[in-house]
Design a protein around this nucleic acid. Structure first.
Length: 260
DNA sequence: ATACCTCCCTGTGGGC
DNA sequence: TGCCCACAGGGAGGTA
C-alpha cells in the first residue's frame, strides 16, 4: 500500500499526534517488525524522550526522538501509522504502540511485516540509510529527470520504481503516471523521445500532487488505478480493455490502445 | 548496468 | 469442506 503519498499522510499523523509529546511507554507487541534493534533497546532509548518534527524521504519516515536518536519507519506493503486513544482496542496487526504523555497512542500496524521500524543512533546513521535512495520524487527537477531516463536501458516502469534512482514511487503510482503520460510501461527508458519524457515528468507531478492531498493513490474512476481490480477493466480514457502483465517484476496494468 | 531469482511475512481467493 | 497454490500497491541480496 504505502507509497510516497501514504507515507506523507503518516508523517502528518506523526506530526499532529506526536510532535512535541513525550513518549511515556513503548509496547512492542510483535518484535518481528523491529529491524536492527531489540525491543529492550527500543524501550530504553525511546521511553521518556520527546518526539521532534518528522520528515519523509521517499517511502521512509524519520522522526527525531530526542536529538538523537531517530525512529525510522518503512511501511513495506501493508504498514500504517495511526493515532489512537488509550482505550481503543488493539488490532491484531498492531505491532508497536507508543503511548504519549497525553495518553494517546501512535500505533504501527502492519500485517505482513515485510519492512519495519529501525532506530538510527545518530544523524550519520540516518544519512547512511538515506544514501541508498535517489532524490525524493517531489524534489526531482525536470532536467535531471530527462537525463535520468535518457541514460537508462531498462524499462521505464522499472526506472520509476527503482528507489535508488527516484525515491517514493511504487507500483500503483508508476502505472498511473505512465497511463496519464500515454507511455507504455515496457518501453526502454532511453528510447522515449524528449516530448514523451516530459509528459512522464509532468504526469508524475500531477499524479503526486493529487495523491498527496488524498494521502493515497485515489481510487478514482477517471484514473487507471480506479479500475485495477475490475473484473473486465476498461480504460477510463478510451474505453479499450485494459491489459495486465508483469513488468519489472510487478503486476502492471496499462492501456494498449492509448499508451505507446 | 540489468534482468532474473529467492527470500522475507500474512492473508485471500481460485481451482480441484 | 479442505488443501494447495499463486499472488499481492514493499525491498534486499545473490547470480549470470
Amino acid at each position: 500500500m504505502p507509497e510516497l503519498p501514504d507515507v506523507e499522510g503518516y508523517r502528518d499523523v506523526l506530526d499532529s499526534c506526536g510532535r512535541g509529546r513525550c513518549v511515556r511507554r513503548v509496547d512492542v507487541r510483535d518484535a518481528g517488525v523491529l529491524r536492527g534493534v531489540t525491543a529492550r533497546r527500543l524501550r530504553r532509548e525511546v521511553e521518556g524522550r520527546r518526539l521532534g518534527r518528522p520528515r519523509r524521504h521517499g517511502k521512509l519516515l524519520i522522526a527525531p526522538i530526542g536529538d538523537p536518536p531517530y525512529l525510522v519507519w518503512h511501511f513495506g506493503m501493508t504498514g500504517e501509522l495511526l493515532c489512537a486513544g488509550a482505550e481503543d482496542s488493539f488490532h491484531a496487526h498492531d505491532r508497536v504502540a507508543l503511548t504519549l504523555d497525553d495518553e494517546r497512542q501512535l500505533r504501527y500496524r502492519d500485517q505482513r511485516k515485510l519492512q519495519g521500524l529501525r532506530l538510527a543512533p545518530t544523524e550519520e546513521a540516518v544519512e547512511r540509510i538515506l544514501a541508498r535512495l535517489g532524490p525524493d520524487a517531489l524534489d526531482f527537477g525536470r532536467e535531471d529527470f530527462l537525463e535520468l531516463l535518457a541514460g537508462r536501458r531498462g524499462v521505464v516502469k522499472g526506472v520509476l520504481m527503482d528507489q535508488s534512482l527516484i525515491a517514493g514511487l511504487g507500483n500503483l503510482l508508476s502505472d498511473e503516471i505512465l497511463w496519464r503520460a500515454r507511455v507504455d510501461p515496457g518501453r526502454p527508458a532511453r528510447e522515449l523521445d524528449e516530448s514523451e519524457a516530459r509528459h512522464v515528468f509532468t504526469a508524475m507531478g500531477g499524479v503526486l500532487e493529487t495523491s498527496v492531498r488524498a494521502a493515497r493513490v485515489p481510487p478514482r474512476r477517471t484514473w487507471l488505478t480506479g479500475h485495477r481490480d475490475d473484473p473486465e477493466p476498461a480504460c477510463p480514457r478510451c474505453g479499450a480493455r485494459l491489459r495486465s502483465r508483469r513488468v519489472a517484476g510487478r503486476r502492471t496494468v496499462w492501456c494498449g490502445r492509448c499508451q505507446h
